[in-house]
Design a protein around this nucleic acid. Structure first.
Lengths: 374, 374
DNA sequence: TTGTAGGCGTTATCAA
DNA sequence: TTGATAACGCCTACAA
């Protein structure tokens, strides 16, 4: 858009890499910093040009400049070119606040992730941004921390923020929050599950199916005595439900279901596997509801001197790429999160343009990444 | 936008099994609730209340409501209480666009990370958000992808976005970008290094020192023949510089310096260690400029049947918590990223309030997390 | 195809 | 302590 020629200049500037040598640490002996005025705000530049200034330079009225930028097809070729050239030259940028105020259209899309530390959620957000940013939208990212309270607070704050759309790496369960979101009157995107009644739009997958698939995979590999480690709430519960169904259908015997809440590191997975083994030493395969748990379980199994998958098989969820590297490689069920994000972004974009996606609900494919642990 | 074909690329997955997608209704995970109107935009609520409405209800003028919210101390106790009660009851929320337009004060703070997949950068951003969000600021997150071109583009787009402040998980090296940032006239925060001339504010650490520290640690542990694996540009180069200095000072012998650019997974670290060992089988300890490389190196060493730290010692950078779990535990130099973020947030806040931090440059402490790999 | 008029919702400024 | 007035910068509606 207004990425002037400057933006595309030599990409790899290793010689400009004059990363001015670092000082020995203590902050007391810092060097003076130039270019900052006493009130703390640097002032090298003049005020940015406004639309009237561009209009004056182009010899047209402000509204014509606005149109040249917003609806180019409505402005005569010659005028448009002249205007755009001046915009380029002066570095004019529309004031987004004035625009949003007058038009009621913000360029901000809010994205809420359950946890910023999750590779998969970040990938989804990145995918979404890849689609929206080239169209002039900005992603505002918030973290709900798997907390209903935090989620509620953030949804409240949306009223203030007035974004153009909202996306979640998850679905909203609390009815009051669902209502609050609907009341915003903007496109809402939910993901990472497949509820029957999304608030508005959805790009998701069935967590129940993922559990079934886990069971089917175990059956196919010939394991009979299986276990589950995961949360008893949210998506973990759904995966367990599917796992039970799949196990029953395939004639597997679930010898243990270990509940782990508030998973924060793979230590939880280590401990969970230890617990499980101490009670059910004969378990042959364990489905962990997420890769953090699964990775911990895998490491613990190896620490105990077990061979995978012969002594025990581990199956995770989430397509975590670190887990791929840990010998013998974690087998894991998952989705292409970045693609999910891209699809979500595309649908949001459509909706913001006033179009209605043919199908407001989409499913992404669950895949099994087969590695050595099962 | 079913850009399916192109988007599909789980490259690291050995064997991708196509599994049935969650079929629309049958295998839905959730419960049914009411629907959404057919044009796709939900309309439960009326337009949000405006300041005049609150003023009317309170029997005061709009400006008094504004003051009650913005400068409570300037409004009489009784009136203020009444106004706030009405605000609460009606769910009134200031329109941020109108506010920003009139006052010139945005509530958006832009945060740019080199890579959203990095745990440490995300932690820093989280820390910053923890400080800013309670004060009513919102973090807008962007990713520069370690690309100068992308960085330049994003800095250009700041002109349009008009945030209240900007933070980077890194320092800006290109002079033109530095100028562009200064011209914004807003607080600029750089991090993750310790340059002599930050643009505006800095919470950082010396990457050179981190290299020195690595060498000193090796010396203290009695290793003599040491190696380095890392980037030759950016922070990697600085860490190498320090490592060389420290090695010289301590009388260590750097038998190998392996350059690895564009590190994207721990596979790069695996390969790098393999290369290094094939050329310098006698190396006793290796400093890897980041934990992704170090983790790969650690795994490779174990795959080769080497005992750590006896056959070879590995030292990383970044305090990655996954690497802590990999036996025998990766020793790593690093900082408290979340704390860095918090400090940065606090300084940004101060500056946005028009105060001048006593010291615009701060150093955070480098620490060594001693585990089993060295 | 272009321009005029006016207002989006808030807050700075000045006056009472 | 409170209010009247105007303006922030842009874009919708309507007119030419």
């Amino acid at each position: 858009m207004s990425d002037t020629g400057a933006a595309k200049r030599p990409p790899t500037i290793d010689d400009v890499l004059r990363l001015r040598a670092a000082e020995p640490l203590p902050s007391s002996d810092g060097e003076p910093v130039e270019g900052v005025s006493r009130d703390g705000v640097s002032r090298d530049g003049a005020a940015p040009p406004r639309i009237v200034e561009i209009a004056r330079l182009a010899g047209v009225s402000p509204i014509t400049v606005s149109r040249a930028l917003r609806h180019p097809e409505k402005v005569a070729e010659a005028k448009r070119r002249k205007i755009l050239e001046i915009v380029e030259r002066t570095g004019y940028a529309t004031n987004p606040h004035a625009r949003a105020l007058r038009s009621g259209q913000s360029t901000i899309v809010a994205a809420f992730v359950s946890n910023l530390q999750s590779q998969q959620f970040c990938l989804a957000v990145q995918g979404c941004g890849e689609v929206l940013e080239p169209q002039g939208y900005q992603l505002m990212i918030g973290q709900t921390s798997y907390s209903y309270a935090k989620e509620t607070t953030m949804i409240q704050s949306l009223r203030e923020m007035r974004p153009a759309a909202v996306m979640f790496t998850g679905v909203i369960e609390i009815e009051e929050n669902r209502r609050a979101l609907r009341a915003l009157g903007i496109p809402i995107m939910e993901t990472w599950a497949y509820p029957r009644d999304p608030i508005d739009m959805l790009v998701g997958f069935s967590n129940i199916d993922s559990g079934r698939l886990a069971a089917e995979h175990f059956a196919e590999r010939g394991y009979r005595r299986v276990g589950f480690i995961g949360r008893r709430s949210g998506r973990g519960a759904l995966r367990l439900t599917g796992f039970r169904e799949g196990a029953r259908a395939a004639g597997l015997d679930i010898v243990a279901e270990l509940s782990v809440e508030g998973v924060s590191s793979m230590v939880d997975g280590r401990r969970a596997l230890g617990d499980l083994l101490s009670r059910n030493a004969d378990v042959e395969a364990v489905f962990c509801a997420n890769d953090l748990l699964a990775t911990g379980a895998l490491l613990e199994a190896r620490r105990l001197g077990m061979r995978l998958p012969d002594d025990i098989a581990i199956l995770g969820f989430g397509h975590n790429d670190v887990a791929e590297e840990l010998p013998p490689g974690l087998t894991t069920i998952g989705i292409d999160s970045r693609d999910l994000g891209r699809q979500a972004g595309a649908m949001i974009l459509q909706r913001m343009r006033g179009e209605m996606p043919a199908e407001p609900t989409r499913a992404v494919e669950l895949t099994l990444a087969r590695r050595g642990s099962s």
